[in-house]
C-alpha cells in the first residue's frame, strides 16, 4: 500500500519532466503514448526475467548471476528449433503455432537447465558460506556465455552457417510489426507488442496464484521465511528449492522467446545486459518480492523509453541508475521490499 503511494508520488514528477515536449499538441501526445507502449513492452520482458532473480533470492538468498545467460541459451534453443523447422516461412496461424511451439520448447529447456544447475552446483553448496554460492553463480554465468558462443558457431543456416559464432543472429519475425490500431490514432500497437503483453500478463497472474494459493506456493513461502523451521514441519526443502529453479527457469525461457521475437536479434552476449536490467529491476522493486520485480521491470522499461525519447539516449543508463539510487536512499529494501533479515 505504502509502495503505491510512493509510485503515485513519482508519477507527477515523471510527467513534469516531459510536459514541455507534448505542449498540448496532438502529435506530442501520440509520441508520448508510443513511448509508453514501447517502454511497457520492454519493461514486461525485463520483469519476466527479474522474477527469476527475485524468486531465487527470496528462497536461498543467492543472486543468481547465471539467470540472464540462461535466457540467452533459451533463445538460442528457440532459434535452433525455428531454423530446423524452417519457421521463417510460417505465417498467420502457422506463425502463431510456431510461437507457441517455441515458448514451450524454450521454457522446458530453461526449466530443465536451471534445475540441473541447482542440482549440480548450488545444492552441494547449500551449507557453504553465501559468498561461495555467489562466486559459483558467476562461474556458471561464464560457462553459459561460452556455451552460447559455441552454440552460435554450429553449422546451421540460421547461425550464418557457423562462420561467425559471435555475430548477432537474426531471429525470424514470426510476429508482424504492423499496427493493430487504426491509423488515425497515430499510435502503433503492433502484434509483437500484443504478443509480449498477452504472454507476460497471464504468466504473472498464474505465478501469483501459484505462490499465494497452492501447496507448493505455501511451501515456497515457508522455506523463504525459515528453511530450518520449514524442514522441521516436514517440508522437503531441497525439492521446494528445485521447484523454484524450475519455475524461474521456465519464466526465463518464456522471456527469452519473447525477447527474441520482439527484438528479432539474439547474440551470445545479450544475457549480460538483459540480466543487468532485470537484476536492477529486482533490486528496485525490492529483491525477494515478486510484485516488486514486476513493478521494477515496468518502471525501468518506461524510464528507458522516456529517457531515450525526451532526454538523450546517452543519458539513459544514468537515468535508470539515478532512479535506483534515489529509490534505495528512501527505501533501502526497494519499492515493495519487505524488511529483510540479514542478507549478504
Amino acid at each position: 500500500m505504502r509502495a503505491i503511494q510512493h509510485l503515485s508520488a513519482l508519477a507527477p514528477l515523471a510527467l513534469a519532466a516531459f510536459a514541455h515536449a507534448d505542449a498540448g499538441s496532438d502529435a506530442g501526445a501520440g509520441v508520448l503514448g508510443q513511448q509508453l507502449v514501447t517502454g511497457l513492452s520492454n519493461g514486461m520482458i525485463i520483469a519476466l526475467i527479474a522474477i527469476g532473480y527475485t524468486m531465487v533470492y527470496g528462497i536461498i538468498e543467492l543472486i543468481n548471476f547465471a539467470h540472464g545467460d540462461l535466457c540467452t541459451l533459451g533463445s538460442f534453443m528457440a532459434l535452433t528449433v525455428a531454423g530446423a523447422l524452417g519457421m521463417e516461412m510460417w505465417s498467420g496461424v502457422g506463425g502463431l503455432t510456431g510461437v507457441i511451439l517455441l515458448l514451450v520448447t524454450a521454457a522446458t529447456f530453461c526449466a530443465a537447465l536451471n534445475w540441473s544447475i541447482d542440482r549440480a552446483v548450488y545444492r552441494p553448496l547449500r551449507s557453504a558460506p553465501k559468498l561461495t554460492l555467489l562466486v559459483s553463480a558467476i562461474g556458471c554465468s561464464f560457462v553459459l556465455v561460452n556455451l552460447s558462443l559455441f552454440w552460435g558457431g554450429l553449422p546451421m543456416q540460421v547461425f550464418g552457417g557457423g562462420v561467425a559464432a559471435a555475430a548477432p543472429k537474426d531471429f525470424p519475425a514470426l510476429v508482424s510489426d504492423n499496427s493493430l490500431l487504426p491509423d488515425a490514432w497515430r499510435l502503433n500497437f503492433t502484434s509483437s507488442d500484443l504478443m509480449v503483453w498477452s504472454v507476460t500478463l497471464p504468466l504473472m497472474v498464474a505465478l501469483t496464484v501459484l505462490v499465494r494459493s497452492t501447496r507448493l506456493g505455501k511451501a515456497m513461502r515457508a522455506v523463504a521465511q525459515n528453511p530450518t523451521a520449514a524442514s522441521l514441519m516436514g517440508i522437503n526443502v531441497d525439492r521446494v528449492i528445485g521447484a523454484t529453479f524450475v519455475i524461474g527457469g521456465a519464466l526465463g525461457g518464456f522471456a527469452s522467446v519473447i525477447y527474441a521475437l520482439y527484438n528479432n536479434t539474439i547474440s551470445f552476449q545479450m544475457g549480460y545486459r538483459t540480466g543487468m536490467d532485470a537484476f536492477t529491476a529486482a533490486v528496485l522493486g525490492g529483491i525477494g518480492s515478486m510484485p516488486g520485480a514486476v513493478v521494477g521491470g515496468l518502471l525501468i522499461g518506461v524510464a528507458r523509453a522516456l529517457s531515450d525519447g525526451y532526454i538523450e539516449a546517452r543519458w539513459t543508463n544514468s537515468v535508470v541508475f539515478a532512479i535506483l539510487i534515489a529509490t534505495l536512499v528512501f527505501r533501502p529494501s526497494g519499492l515493495l521490499g519487505a524488511k529483510l533479515r540479514d542478507k549478504v
Binding site: A27, G30, V31, Q34, Q35, T38, G39, S41, N42, Y259, Y262, N263, Q269, M270, Y272, R273, T274, D277, R304, A305, L306, D308, G309, E312, A313, R314, T316, N317
Partner: peptide, 18 residues
C-alpha cells in the same frame, strides 16, 4: 550517442519517426 549494448532502440526510433 547510442548505447551499443542496448537490447533495442525502439524508443529512439519512435523519436526519429516523430
Amino acid at each position: 550517442g547510442i548505447d551499443p549494448k542496448a537490447s533495442n532502440y525502439k524508443a529512439l526510433a519512435n523519436k526519429i519517426k516523430a
